[in-house]
């Protein structure tokens, strides 16, 4: 993990000052660990000014999320209804209000969520409805850490925007697991990944000039060929699963991307016309004035 866990002392003035001091001193004479490897640049359907999400890919990506990622990762900012929103994986023009979308309703009903019985006040279980948030796999952070060897699987709602490189980075992590090079000590339950940011200096017993790129990650390699069966017949390779779930996570982080690109085109055309008209007016107004 590149993010250092500081003790509670960070709250104290002293630690705050030490932090600033470290920044001011610029890290002193610390050896520089190499940066992680650059993720491969994938051609996504949503790239470019006219790009938009590929609905079939989002559906496959949701399936990868549902069957694999959701076992450990929450997505607490999303409601089931979002899956049926315009631009989303299960949008159907017949159901402009995504809460009514029967497919979304059936996806929600696969889950049981906690509720309060309004008569008795008891905690009860009921099937989820479209308006419910996607349930989290763990009750709280401590439970999540306890089940994951001390690591906390991050919430994935905005993950694709919360990582440098976005979906390219997520795809690189998912497909980038390697056997650790000889001389690198990897603790049990941890995995070497050259794309994961970290500092392997202390775990490296080889040539100090060639510290391996990347870091160790607490996530077990989650995907493999054929792990998920795609309903649309797409061949379920590791690379395909990684691409699809990365696209799905980008949609989850930026659900209004299609709308944004569409409006952008209209705004650009408008502004170009307006600029042209204003320039013509400018030329006309100033025609007989030297300047």
């Amino acid at each position: 993990m590149t993010l250092k866990l500081l003790s509670k002392a960070v709250f104290s003035k002293a630690m705050g000052l030490a932090l600033t001091g470290a920044l001011l001193a610029g890290g002193g004479a610390m050896a520089q660990a190499p940066h992680p490897e650059e993720p491969e640049n994938i051609q996504w359907s949503f790239e470019g000014p006219l790009g938009k999400f590929d609905q079939a890919q989002l559906q496959r990506g949701y399936k990868v999320y549902r069957e694999v990622c959701a076992a450990c990762h929450s997505m607490s900012l999303l409601s089931f209804r979002n899956l049926g929103d315009k631009g989303g994986p299960f949008y159907a023009p017949r159901y402009p209000n995504s809460n009514d979308n029967p497919y979304v309703k059936s996806l929600a009903a696969e889950y049981e969520v906690d509720d309060i019985d309004s008569e008795t006040g008891d905690v009860i279980k009921r099937p989820a409805i479209s308006a419910d948030r996607l349930p989290s796999p763990f009750k709280n952070e401590a439970a999540a850490r306890a089940s994951n060897g001390g690591s906390l699987p991050p919430d994935m709602s905005v993950l694709a925007k919360a990582r440098e490189g976005g979906p390219d980075y997520i795809h690189a992590i998912l497909t980038g697991y390697r056997d650790p090079p000889a001389g690198l000590k990897v603790d049990p339950g941890k995995f070497y990944n050259p794309y994961f940011p970290g500092d392997l200096t202390s775990a490296w017993s080889g040539d100090p000039a060639h510290i391996p790129h990347g870091g160790v990650i607490g996530m077990i390699p989650p995907l493999r060929d054929g792990l998920v069966t795609f309903d649309d017949g797409t061949k379920s390779t590791l690379d395909q699963q990684a691409k699809d779930v990365s696209a799905f996570l980008m949609w989850a982080a930026e659900p209004k991307l299609n709308e944004r690109h569409q409006m952008g085109a209209a705004v650009m055309i408008y502004l170009l016309l307006l600029s042209g008209l204003l320039y013509a007016s400018y030329r006309k107004v100033w025609k007989n004035e030297s300047h």
Binding site: G264, L272, L274, L278, Y282
Partner: peptide, 18 residues
């Protein structure tokens, strides 16, 4: 100024939308 603002808005919109 109006013309310059409009051109500036194109730059602004490029960031906002793309």
């Amino acid at each position: 100024d109006g013309f310059a603002m409009s051109v500036f808005l194109i730059l602004f919109a490029t960031f906002v939308f793309y």
